Computed example of a mutant assay.
Amino acid sequence: MQEHDLSFVRAEMVLAQAAPSRERGLTAWLRKNMFASVTDTILTLLGLFLIAWFLPGFLRWAFVDAQWTGADRTVCATASQGGVQPDGWSGACWAFVNAKFAQFMYGRYTLSERWRVDLTAILFVLLLVPLLIPRFPRKGLNAILLFLVFPFVAFFLLVGGYFGLRYVPTTEWGGLLVTMVLSIVGIAISLPFGIVLALGRRSQMPAIKLICVIFIEVVRGVPLVTVLFLASVMLPLFMPAGMTFDRFLRALVGVVLFASAYMAEVVRGGLQAMPKGQYEGADSLGLSYWQKMNLIILPQALKLVIPGIVNTFIGLFKDTSLVYIIGMFDLLGIVRQNFTDANWASAQTPMSGLLFAGFVFWIFCFGMSRYSIYMERRLDTGQRS
């Protein structure tokens, strides 16, 4: 047999080499992301100009000339650096936020009972964080505690009236407490309701499909303010004589119904994006309808619409501010209510309070957005037809 010359075959792997100098470092990043084209260069320079024009003045107002402590509006009448500036400039009135901070968090919740709100928040965080960490063990037990046990514990803690706890009516709730309860309950309930409505809209049973279509289109066709008014005013009319609903519960029902309709359309988009082969493959295995949905279709469909689901959650979190219209005071509502306090009536109070409320909303919305991006990358395993 003729021997072959294998001298041209490499006997060992080539060592990894560094990327070219033009492709690494800060200069390469700026070239690719900021100055890749003429248009990008113009927009980058325009953005830098706007930052240079706006940022120094904002930092001066928010930090240098700001008032951080004080008992009333008189501390906000002058700047912290040598009194009022010649042009009438004065800094932010963070003393107003500092003085009203507890009210912004709890509303008029009884002072001696606020530890119950703090304990509820701590329990929620302790149960939520492990559920959000993919590698954390005992996810099943964690989910049971969070979704089945915690709601009852939170109810008894916040409302009271049992186990020796003083009863605190929801009319005394306010601030971030109302915002968090409305948004968390709305998010937790609207997702499963939206999935059921999306499946019902794609159902082959005409009656089920018609009911779901009517509900989704009617609720999506009116603003949330209308839904809240209907839940607050008309819902009690459908109750038996002598039976009334708490106003907070009415608002919660309205928020859940409104969010469920939008969530249904998001989930329906994921179901329609699923390749037909997935349905046919499930049918060929002899799976029932619910087995097919639970094991094959829904896990993939929900993964596809994570951005839409989180976008709905963020919108719901911000829309809780509309309960102010029906006489409830969430974070933004109670901030606005305190503008009428004669002790803090000044030109800088509204801007400082609104910036504080906006920053709190941004923290929560930004957190949800970043976590959704993390989950998208983690679940990005590709799609097969």
Score class of each variant (00 low, 15 high):
172 E>W: 11
172 E>Y: 11
172 E>F: 05
173 W>V: 02
173 W>A: 02
175 G>W: 02
177 L>P: 04
177 L>M: 11
177 L>S: 03
179 T>A: 07
179 T>M: 10
180 M>W: 12
182 L>Q: 06
183 S>L: 11
184 I>R: 02
185 V>M: 14
185 V>T: 13
185 V>I: 13
187 I>A: 13
188 A>E: 12
190 S>L: 10
194 G>A: 01
194 G>L: 06
195 I>R: 00
195 I>A: 03
196 V>W: 13
197 L>V: 03
197 L>R: 00
200 G>A: 12
202 R>G: 08
202 R>M: 12
203 S>T: 04
205 M>D: 14
207 A>T: 09
210 L>V: 11
212 C>M: 10
213 V>I: 10
216 I>Y: 02
217 E>G: 00
218 V>E: 09
219 V>F: 11
220 R>N: 12
221 G>I: 12
221 G>L: 10
221 G>N: 08
222 V>H: 07
223 P>N: 08
223 P>Q: 08
224 L>N: 01
224 L>K: 06
225 V>D: 12
225 V>C: 02
225 V>S: 10
226 T>G: 07
227 V>Y: 09
228 L>C: 08
229 F>W: 15
231 A>V: 09
232 S>Y: 09
232 S>H: 11
233 V>D: 13
234 M>L: 15
235 L>I: 04
236 P>C: 06
236 P>E: 12
236 P>Q: 04
236 P>Y: 06
237 L>Y: 14
237 L>R: 07
241 A>H: 04
243 M>R: 07
243 M>K: 04
244 T>P: 01
244 T>G: 12
245 F>H: 02
246 D>F: 07
248 F>K: 04
248 F>Y: 15
248 F>E: 12
249 L>D: 15
250 R>M: 15
250 R>D: 14
250 R>P: 07
251 A>K: 06
251 A>D: 14
252 L>D: 15
252 L>W: 08
255 V>T: 09
255 V>Y: 13
257 L>P: 06
260 S>T: 08
261 A>R: 03
262 Y>Q: 04
264 A>H: 08
265 E>K: 04
266 V>S: 02
267 V>R: 00
267 V>Q: 05
267 V>S: 07
269 G>L: 11
270 G>K: 00
270 G>V: 03
271 L>G: 03
272 Q>I: 01
273 A>E: 12
274 M>T: 14
274 M>N: 05
278 Q>C: 08
279 Y>K: 00
280 E>N: 05
281 G>E: 14
281 G>C: 10
282 A>P: 11
282 A>H: 07
283 D>K: 09
285 L>Q: 10
290 W>A: 08
290 W>I: 10
290 W>C: 03
291 Q>F: 12
292 K>E: 14
292 K>N: 14
293 M>T: 03
293 M>Q: 14
294 N>T: 10
297 I>H: 10
299 P>S: 08
300 Q>E: 14
300 Q>I: 04
302 L>R: 00
302 L>Y: 04
304 L>T: 06
304 L>G: 01
305 V>S: 06
309 I>G: 00
309 I>H: 00
309 I>F: 00
